[in-house]
């Protein structure tokens, strides 16, 4: 008799558990999106379809400023993180196994392992003294902090891409008169391109979404979109928060879809 692989789908009740899990995951989000079109002032009472909260959010200067700030930080931080991650990935994959390899991986991926609140408090203390010493209070603190925790998210897809690349392609380029820079420019970079774009988008989304570190690092009047929303929750909750959340969700879904399309294997 042929042995059959264990199939989770044959367990009684599998479909029910799966159904509940998906419901728990998506029902709240769908509710959020639905209520963003609510005409009522109350957050959980349906008062008919309307786009008024989107209009309100759009017209709100605080939201505008926070959005602009969020995008500035996310663009800058993901760009810095992607450059660092690309170099880190090249440095850790374009060679044989080396001493301390695992240690280096752990070092690079530190933000994935250290609790975010610990990093946040640490940054608060460090930046506080830097602020006093330099007198500078700008967005750079947030950009640096975001870049730091975005690096592993950019690093992982880039490294995966590089590890899947045939090393003999670079040897072949060198054989065909390409100097090291030409080899990088014409072979390595185009081949790792999808990994770099995926890493950058992931970093962008992670930065856009961050609350904890931002809350600790930001100076007065430096609210990003998530910290602005958090601040709103402490006062009066209006469906405006739903509208902003839905817009953020749409942007994230768009980016993640692009991420998926870029990283999946092409035949």
């Amino acid at each position: 008799m042929a042995t059959r692989a264990f199939a989770a789908t044959t367990i009684p009740g599998f479909a029910i558990v799966a159904g509940i899990a998906f419901f728990a995951l998506y029902a709240p989000i769908l509710t959020l999106v639905a209520y963003s079109f609510n005409d009522s002032n109350a957050i959980s009472q349906w008062g008919g379809f309307s786009l008024r909260w989107y209009e309100a959010a759009w017209a709100n200067t605080a939201v505008q400023e926070a959005t602009l700030r969020s995008l500035t930080i996310a663009c800058s931080a993901s760009a810095i993180a992607t450059v660092c991650a690309t170099m880190a990935a090249l440095g850790t994959t374009r060679r044989g196994a080396f001493r301390g390899q695992t240690f280096i991986y752990v070092m690079i991926n530190q933000p994935l392992m250290v609790p975010e609140i610990v990093t946040a408090v640490a940054l608060l203390i460090v930046f506080a003294s830097v602020k006093v010493a330099t007198g500078y209070n700008g967005l750079m603190y947030l950009i640096i902090a975001h870049a730091a925790f975005c690096i592993p998210f950019a690093y992982l897809p880039i490294r995966a891409r590089l590890e899947g690349m045939d090393l003999s392609l670079e040897t072949a380029a060198a054989d065909l008169y390409a100097n090291p820079w030409q080899t990088f420019r014409h072979v390595t970079l185009p081949l790792m391109g999808p990994g770099i774009i995926a890493g950058a988008m992931l970093a962008f989304v992670i930065s856009l979404d961050d609350v904890v570190i931002t809350e600790f690092v930001k100076s007065a009047g430096q609210d990003t979109l998530p910290t602005y929303m958090l601040g709103q929750l402490r006062r009066a909750i209006t469906p405006e928060v739903n509208a902003i959340s839905s817009a953020l969700l749409a942007l994230t879904v768009l980016l993640l879809t692009a991420f998926f399309l870029l990283t999946r294997k092409r035949d």
């Binding site: 003999s168 392609l169 040897t171 072949a172 380029a173 060198a174 054989d175 065909l176 008169y177 081949l191």
Partner: peptide, 20 residues
């Protein structure tokens, strides 16, 4: 001399064609 300065070319066992 590095490989790129040698007027010598190689046909690799794996072909190593550039996929892009």
């Amino acid at each position: 001399d590095p490989p790129n300065r040698r007027p010598v070319n190689t046909v690799f066992q794996s072909y190593a064609l550039f996929p892009h």
